[in-house]
Design a protein around this nucleic acid. Structure first.
Length: 363
DNA sequence: AATTAGTACAACCGCGACCGG
DNA sequence: TCCGGTCGCGGTTGTACTAAT
């Protein structure tokens, strides 16, 4: 059998698991005698899920003898596993003091707080949560808490406001340098409206799934077939007034007062509850405003400040028709021929990249 | 009912730190 | 000081389960 294994390794594929195990054990012992210490990770030891029998052996041995040297434990306990696997199984699953089940809200808050202080030091974090393992905390972070923060517009790495969306606006700035007058107007509007999206995205939480960024991106990509956006005699965009009134309507869109639902005790940098948007129409998002400034985004249109919107309207050339009072935020989007912008500047690709890199597609 | 996509979590892997000879 | 063995940590993968289509 040994010769067979050495000469025809492919036969491993067809071997019975039991005979394969024993064959590999023989191979390991032979190699040991040949002078090369086999890696327990590679040869002769079982991998994969633990059986109840294996668990029983491990628990009984450790309860009776302690784990001692993990490397020697498997042999002493009668397990065909490597020490590493035994240690992992014990520390992450079998240890009697492990608290299983859902994480309490207090635990989640504590994890986020500790993560803001310690970063991915899962073992350090776990040391402060009795009964929770580093692996469990790490998994919970990656599957729940990280997304929760992302959805709140907080970078789960830095625990600060996300800036990836603003990269897009920076890109638009660069594009604008190369744009002709016709496209410049479109881009200005696109940029201004993107700022609106950025603001709303950073203040939207789980409780408002209808207005998350994905939805906005989907809406954006579906807006097509607009004609006559650019006046043939004037490069200024039509429908700008729409953006103004749209911006004014923002506070009625249900974004406000949602961040405050979750108030992790993060003690450096702005905490989420500091970002609460005022609900009085002149909404102000502290996160977003600081982020925007730090990214040197020209205030063509502010998501939250009607004065800037006014300024944008005046900058755009004065030939802008007034929109109807019933205009919404998306009236302005509808004024953009995005197919056109996409063809000229790869706008859609950019948005898709941002959307995917934001990891928001899973919500 | 079958298939696909998304989610959760146990387990593995590789690397670096630590320690004793 | 160097070196090999061991352990622990963090990142990643594999797989079972569930929801959506």
């Amino acid at each position: 059998m040994l010769e067979l294994l050495l000469l025809r390794p492919s036969c491993i594929l067809f071997a019975e698991p039991k005979s394969l195990d024993s064959s590999l054990s023989i191979l390991a012992s032979v190699l040991r005698k040949m002078g090369r210490a086999p890696c327990c990770d590679e040869i002769g030891v079982k991998k994969g899920p633990w059986t109840p029998e294996e668990d029983k052996l491990l628990v009984e041995y450790i309860q009776k003898n302690g784990h001692g040297s993990w490397r020697h434990l498997p042999k002493l306990a009668g397990l065909n596993r490597c020490g590493k696997s035994c240690r992992l199984r014990w520390t992450n699953y079998l240890r009697p003091d492990i608290k299983r089940g859902r994480f309490a809200e207090e635990e989640e808050k504590l994890i986020i707080h500790l993560h803001s202080l310690l970063g991915n030091k899962w073992s350090s974090i776990a040391a402060r949560l009795p009964g929770r393992t580093d692996n469990e905390i790490k998994n919970h972070w990656n599957t729940h808490l990280r997304k929760k923060l992302l959805h709140m517009g907080i970078d789960p790495v830095t625990h600060k406001p996300r800036t990836d969306l603003n990269l897009f606006t920076s890109s638009l700035n660069l594009i604008k340098l190369q744009a002709d007058a016709t496209h410049l107007a479109k881009l200005q509007l696109a940029q201004g409206l993107l700022q609106v999206l950025t603001t709303t995205a950073t203040t939207t939480s789980n409780s408002n799934p209808n207005m998350d960024l994905v939805g906005l991106m989907g809406l954006l990509s579906s807006l097509r077939n607009y004609e006559g956006f650019v006046n043939s005699n004037n490069s200024s965009p039509h429908g700008i007034q729409g953006s103004h009134s749209s911006l004014s309507s923002l506070p009625n869109m249900g974004f406000e007062n949602q961040i405050g639902e979750f108030q992790a005790p993060i003690d450096h940098g702005p905490s989420p509850h500091e970002l609460r948007v005022e609900s009085n129409g002149a909404s102000k998002n502290l996160y977003t405003s600081s982020t925007m400034n730090s990214n040197a985004m020209p205030p063509l249109v502010s998501a939250t400040n009607s004065e800037n919107a006014q300024m944008y309207a005046s900058n755009s050339g004065g030939s802008v028709p007034l929109s109807s009072p019933s205009s919404t935020l998306f009236d302005a989007w509808e004024g953009l021929n995005l197919e056109d912008l996409n063809n000229d500047f790869g706008l859609k690709d950019m948005l898709e990249q941002i959307s995917s890199s934001s990891s928001l597609h899973s919500y």
